[in-house]
Design a binder for these strands. Structure first.
Lengths: 187, 187
DNA sequence: TTCGTTTGTTCACATTTGTGAATGGATGCA
DNA sequence: TGCATCCATTCACAAATGTGAACAAACGAA
């Protein structure tokens, strides 16, 4: 749990006692490659910190998995809209590789935040992470051509090819797998 | 202020006294067409409700105004990242037409939320609005072709052409003005 | 009003991306 | 081991979008 502890230490000023209370509320879970953290239609009731491994977020459209996000070590996973508004999720979240998370369900979070009000900042962090990421993706999709978007993704996630099948990368970039192959061949 | 009052009534359960306290903290402001609510580099310190008129959000890149969002009656305007993290804004927010807003600065919001804690939900609403919009725009940019994105925009904002110059619409859709003209000609 | 500026349209041609099919490698399972 | 499936690559051709230019229409300021 080194990643999770150092995340807490780096981002918040919790004292040792608070840190212990927080850690006690989270539960460790391992998910095999291909296992779901959440499936379309489910009500998302939890928030989780990715300790190890990776996940992708997708929606099934016309039989295709349209990828809209990835999350790796140090990221949070959850479906914000479903969690906050108590709605069925429009997305599925699936493990790309064998993964390890620390998760917290919504009622535990409510109890925890009575004891340690500062933990509400975790929810804020989550919202900010998602908002920032989706705004940036929209910006790149609107202003860059496919090759430049691919370069941007490589710059921000240099190891993406070791962890994500290429046709998921293409989907995230808004292009077809053949187009991504072509782009890679030219470089 | 009908829009603002009915927004409060429709979304929250404030009693008349709370409603009055809230209204007292907001200030009315009118902005002429072309006036800025916020400019790139400024620190955003306020949140505002659009009572009348409209705004667009853009970033200057290579001398071009890249439009990433619109806001009309009933929407909130603010630069979330700048407001929450106390950072200089990466975006400018400019009035498309003569507009009327009710605005609240961050310190007034802090005071107000001591008296009426429920107003914090306004900040949450703001985050949700932005997150939902940018996620949806990214999704459409990645999965639809330009003509379909244009149709989607028309469906969600039927009056957009009465209020927004066409080359801003093109920019928002991630295409060139000429391409939007072509798309419109075909239909 | 008149003139200059801004915005929208059209065109021909270039570039980018999609499409469907064929191929070969890798992977996993019987 | 052999076979089937999945994934990445390549190709030729089609479709979508960009580019630069010319022009027209709308708008605003004097």
């Amino acid at each position: 749990m080194e990643n999770f502890q150092s995340f807490l230490a780096a981002n918040f000023e919790f004292n040792p006692e608070e840190t212990q209370q927080i850690l006690n509320c989270f539960e460790k879970k391992t998910l095999k490659k291909g296992a779901y953290f959440l499936t379309e239609g489910q009500y998302c009731k939890t928030v989780a910190f990715v300790e190890k491994g990776g996940f992708f977020f997708y929606q099934l459209m016309d039989g295709e998995e349209k990828v809209c996000d990835f999350a790796f070590e140090g990221d949070w996973i959850s479906q914000y809209k479903s969690l906050i508004n108590n709605l069925p999720s429009e997305l599925s979240i699936k493990a790309l590789v064998d993964s390890e998370i620390y998760w917290l369900d919504a009622t535990a979070m409510d109890k925890l935040s009575d004891k340690v009000p500062k933990v509400l900042i975790i929810r804020t962090k989550l919202a900010e992470q998602y908002f920032t990421q989706s705004a940036e993706r929209a910006d790149k999709l609107a202003t860059l051509k496919a090759e430049e978007r691919y370069q941007w993704l490589l710059d921000s996630h240099p190891k993406i090819h070791q962890r994500v099948p290429q046709y998921y990368i293409a989907s995230y970039l808004g292009i077809k797998p053949q187009s991504l192959s072509r782009i890679r061949a030219v470089k």
